[in-house]
Design a protein around this nucleic acid. Structure first.
Length: 112
DNA sequence: AAGCTGACTATGG
DNA sequence: GCCATAGCCAGCT
């Protein structure tokens, strides 16, 4: 059954559901969407989020280690860090502190 | 049209 | 605990 919305749009929807002050990982989103190992596509969707007119809080999506691997895609070197710190996330050397507490798993939080 | 790339992750040595 | 390899698949050249 073909979906009416593309994989990218699904990613955007999930990313927008991330609560303020919380973060998630590419893999977690991929798993929630049922695409499993295609975590790269989630990152690619973030890259394509530039095309979206709507603001996508892509800064709340980091890799599974809580490392700000995609910070260079926000224009500035520390833009992503600034955004996260503005939401109460503590970051040292591109690493989110207390990542385990900040982590928001859609497949768990949105589980029925 | 065919091949390369990548904001990832898991696994193995 | 770090480095290499493999799976993933849509978009770009």
């Amino acid at each position: 059954m073909p979906s009416e919305i593309s994989f990218f749009e699904k990613v955007y929807l999930v990313v927008e559901l991330i609560p303020l002050g919380r973060v998630t990982s590419y893999g977690a989103i991929a798993r929630y969407l049922g695409t499993g190992g295609s975590s790269r596509m989630v990152g690619w969707a973030m890259n394509a989020s530039h095309n979206q007119l709507q603001h996508i809080p892509a800064h709340r999506v980091v890799n599974r280690n809580g490392l700000l691997t995609g910070k260079h895609h926000f224009g500035g070197e520390d833009t992503m860090k600034q955004l996260l710190e503005g939401e109460g996330i503590v970051i040292i050397e591109d690493q989110i502190i207390n990542f385990g507490e900040k982590f928001w798993d859609p497949s768990k939080e949105l589980a029925l």
